[in-house]
Write a protein that binds this DNA or RNA. Structure first.
Lengths: 365, 365
DNA sequence: CTGAAAGCGCTTACAG
DNA sequence: CTGAAAGCGCTTACAG
């Protein structure tokens, strides 16, 4: 290993160098790498050999400079790569992109609008062919100039006043049915752990939670609603606050994966401290998580596949790219060209699954 | 929302168009976006205004074409984005890269050497400044030409005969200590679920497992060693095979996250089928996973932080990039220039933590 | 089937 | 402080 093949820094070889070594013109090299249509096989062989010898890799950046050429890049901005949910989501996008011969540029905005803006600006600067965004806020950086230039697909969340395609989860319905499932199991006093109101899914899932209460003629106790947790640690702290009440809820609706894991961590801590599992709340989680089947308290999952969500977003993007290619350059700004098709929104349904059933337990309170 | 700001496709504006609108030369636009050194504030203002109005974004691809300019891109190839472990890893790389003003190009090789080769070729074609790779095999595509041109850091796994920097986990030691910890808890008959021998970490972790046995004068039962599971489903199947034996192991060492989750899923299924948790094996997992504290069987984690692993790999990469910049272009191939510094390997230690302690349980067999 | 010329968007010298 | 010229690596016409 000591005498491996590490070397000093060199410039990357160019078409010209390959051409010289192969004894052909740069055009022949270019044509060969473009598929070799109308290049003598013998010359192709010599070109590939020379390229091989020099370690030539066609410069995609230079290539994409020519008008009509595209970068082969899709920009993907998610809010939190630390959440396995978004790892799956990114995988879904990546797999579809790869199938279309595209690569993804990935950034995590960490729910910071500034960082998101930077990401978008950078993606645009690199001339990505399209954008898949889980917007963390206003999606600043998505000016009309950008939207007019490339397809954008929002995933999970929508941004007000921006008419782009979107793939959403049926948040209200899922939260509604998950909450009802808790009522059906005998709970009447539910806690809520989720995102702030400013987050699209936070609003929608809370709405489903409230609607289920209304439908059953039950009141939401605002003291049991905690909505500012973004990570597992803060979710555990919020759960602790619920459990420490004189009148803790008998079930807790967790509006996402991170809140569910945090809540369960806290439940685990209580069990370790001697609290019987039977007296701890059941969990309803919007979003799946691994090992849900092994939890010591009842668990219901409002489920959808994040990988499929990512794949659907990518598919929508490539449909748009395809349409764009069919009707390429509409006359600029003549007002008479047909309007672009209206924004499409796909809503992915959820399934509600009781992963660990409610055992016989007395109603607290 | 219906009347949002979607528009027809347009070409992206260029320096020339901004220059015309601002009434300056393209150079003044370029200088303004480069920081504005020696451009009258008044002109800068006009340039920014024009740029704003046109939705101008400097074309990074064109920019990186000039010699000396770098792409600002780091290529990251991991083996499996579906594994939360690698999501964390990618986040670690991304965060450090962002701090250095770089963006990451992310690809998942799915352990397929062909796909990995494509990824590397593509990254090189896009003129990434460096590569962070979790190699899925021989890392074909990493010819000496590539290695001589940009820094490469391997993470988790090494590739024989390629002298690149690497950040490794102390696999042998971690597996050794995790196994010993099972012995100390009273187990003498351990199962093993892991990767094939061809995977670097698979080999090393198995080695630690074997060494611990040797140290205690115990024999590894080859029938209890299953090493071809890459995902949760196949790991669960393998676990089922172990549990269905007449003489099942009393503890199972899982060489990674995916195998641990699969094993625990199967344990959950058995418990649901009425098997008492007390008669099911304890788990030792190399790699952390969420909710480990809530498992119904004893769990020991051989732990390290994948995010830190990614961050360390990225830091190593930027160190190399920095060195390269200091001593820029060595005379090409004159044989007299100083050899590049030897490949550096950083090994990240693991901690062994009993997350759920062994309760009093009889030894099976 | 092959090549010489021109230009994609940008920035590095070079000249003022 | 500002600009005209040249060229980065590639490919699209255009000519043979």
């Amino acid at each position: 290993m000591a005498e491996g093949r590490q070397q000093r820094a060199h410039r990357a070889p160019t078409v010209n160098e390959v051409a010289r070594l192969a004894g052909v013109s740069p055009m022949t090299v270019s044509r060969t790498f473009a598929g070799g249509a109308s290049v003598r096989p013998e010359l192709q062989r010599r070109v590939f050999e020379a390229a091989q010898q020099l370690g030539y890799h066609r410069n995609e950046n230079a290539r994409s400079l020519r008008p009509g050429q595209s970068s082969g890049l899709i920009g993907v901005a998610i809010t939190n790569l630390a959440n396995p949910y978004y790892g799956q989501f990114a995988l879904g996008v990546e797999e579809v992109a790869a199938r279309f011969g595209r690569r993804i540029l990935l950034g995590s905005s960490n729910e910071e609008p500034d960082r998101e803006r930077q990401l978008i600006d950078d993606f645009v600067g690199r001339r990505v062919e399209g954008l898949v965004l889980v917007p963390s806020g206003p999606a600043a950086g998505l000016g009309s100039a950008v939207l007019g230039r490339m397809p954008v697909v929002f995933a999970s969340r929508l941004v007000a006043d921006v008419a782009a395609d979107a793939v959403l989860v049926d948040d209200v319905d899922g939260a509604f049915r998950g909450t009802v499932s808790a009522f059906d199991a005998g709970h009447t006093r539910l806690g809520y752990l989720g995102n702030e109101q400013s987050v699209f899914t936070g609003r929608r899932r809370y709405e489903g939670f409230v609607r289920a209460h209304e439908m059953r003629g039950l009141a939401v106790d605002p003291d049991l609603v905690l909505r500012s947790q973004r990570d597992v640690t803060s979710a555990a702290t919020a759960m602790a606050a619920l459990l420490d009440r004189d009148d803790p809820p008998t079930a807790v609706f967790c509006a996402n994966n991170r809140n569910a894991i945090g809540a369960l961590d806290e439940i685990g801590a209580r069990i370790d401290a001697g609290v019987p599992a039977e007296s701890l709340p059941a969990i309803v989680s919007f979003d799946r998580f691994e090992l849900a089947e092994l939890m010591p308290v009842p668990v219901t999952i409002v489920d959808h596949d994040p990988r499929e969500l990512g794949a659907a977003a990518a598919r929508l993007l490539f449909e748009r790219l395809d349409e764009k290619q069919r009707s390429p350059d509409l006359a600029p700004d003549d007002g008479a060209s047909p309007p672009s098709p209206a924004a499409r929104t796909i809503t992915i349904p959820t399934t509600v699954t009781v992963v660990r059933p409610e055992r016989d337990r007395r109603q607290a309170g």
